[in-house]
């Protein structure tokens, strides 16, 4: 069939059924930065393989900014305040700061296995997730098991695997995993972080993606949450990370909170200024390893305290797996 009239009818009806989105265009400064990054990646492709995302982002951004400063300087100046005092004050609410300092002390006394470059960090959780349709109300599903294997290699084809709903879902970006960093924290990357809490905050905030509209504090809080909840962390770093959270404005303590399977403890929470979502890390007193996480949306009422749970986890097991898809202590042969 090749009928232009029929094609026209089909396409024009589809145009009304699924209106073309009208996303914000690529800003000139972003286009210039992207162009520099992809061209540099192409020029460097003859040498050792590297990702275009790795191209010295800060320097590149600075260069592009200079190039187009006359045009669009204002939004960037206001969105990324970069001058910080050398030692950051404690900004978390006092009760949260005390709880975090307690966690920092407990963390120092903990032990974690070392994780090698060929190993996988393995975490098994019970998860309650939002099963509601995209853009509609929250419908919490039944608790179910979720397993994750996170590759520790520098540049694997896939950064890991999630096993959930009876299926395996490879974790990868658009084609290959990004280099270890705040968005893909490996044990080695975590171990390389500075142990000075102020420098951790500065390091994380400096890695916030260009153009991200989250506050730097929220970005740092989320990244530290990823690191402490679904990874293994050397004790000294775990301690420094909890100290670092005390430097973040808006962090508060929730006295009594449960994880996805009802284990009770206290919560360390922060509400994202842009989205109104609240993330709560749940801790059992006396342990610096989180029990799980809870996520809330704002509402349903306009009361700023009103929150609707849209997801929760309870971590059941953390360990080091030597093979993708095989839990620690399980034999690959036994599965076949």
């Amino acid at each position: 069939m090749n009928d232009p009239v029929l094609d026209d009818q089909l396409l024009s009806e589809l145009r009304t059924l699924a209106l073309r989105p009208d996303p914000a265009p690529l800003a000139p400064v972003d286009r210039a930065r992207l162009e520099a990054a992809v061209v540099e990646a192409v020029v460097g492709a003859a040498g050792p393989r590297r990702s275009w995302r790795d191209v010295a982002p800060a320097a590149l951004v600075a260069a592009c900014l200079l190039a187009v400063l006359g045009l669009v300087a204002v939004p960037f100046v206001t969105s990324r305040p970069d001058t910080r005092p050398a030692a950051l004050p404690v900004r978390a609410e006092p009760a949260a700061a005390r709880a975090l300092q307690g966690l920092a002390t407990v963390a120092l006394a903990s032990t974690t296995p070392r994780v090698g470059a060929d190993d996988f960090v393995y975490v098994r959780s019970t998860v309650i997730s939002n099963e509601g349709a995209y853009g509609e109300g929250v419908e919490l599903g039944a608790p179910h098991e979720r397993e994750i294997w996170l590759s520790q290699q520098e540049r694997p084809a896939a950064s890991g695997l999630i096993r959930e709903f009876g299926q395996d879902w490879p974790l990868s970006g658009a084609g290959r995993a990004s280099a270890p960093g705040p968005d893909r924290p490996t044990y080695a990357w975590i171990d390389d972080l500075p142990t000075d809490p102020d420098r951790i905050v500065a390091e994380l905030e400096s890695r916030q993606p260009f153009g991200s509209e989250q506050s730097p504090e929220q970005y740092a809080f989320d990244r530290i949450g990823d690191i402490v909840t679904e990874n293994l962390v050397p004790p000294e770093l775990a301690s420094a990370l909890f100290e670092a959270v005390t430097r973040l404005d808006g962090v508060r303590l929730i006295d009594d909170v449960q994880d996805a399977i009802g284990r009770r403890g206290f919560g360390i929470a922060r509400t994202d200024e842009r989205f109104g979502t609240t993330t709560v890390w749940v801790f059992e007193p006396g342990s610096a390893v989180p029990l799980g996480v809870r996520w809330y949306l704002p509402g349903p009422s306009s009361d700023p305290q009103a929150m609707t749970l849209f997801g929760a986890t309870a971590i059941q097991e953390r360990g080091v797996a030597s093979e993708l898809g095989v839990a620690p202590g399980e034999s690959a042969d036994a599965l076949t």
Binding site: I128, N130, Y134, I162, G175, E230, D272, F275, W295, F310
Partner: peptide, 27 residues
């Protein structure tokens, strides 16, 4: 490919689940 991972993360209440939920094209 990119959003498949992203949407999966959303339904899994994984790391960045709330971002897609709250992100809308600017108007």
């Amino acid at each position: 490919n990119a959003t498949r991972g992203r949407r999966r993360q959303l339904s899994f209440v994984s790391r960045h689940g709330h971002r897609l939920l709250a992100d809308t094209p600017d108007i």
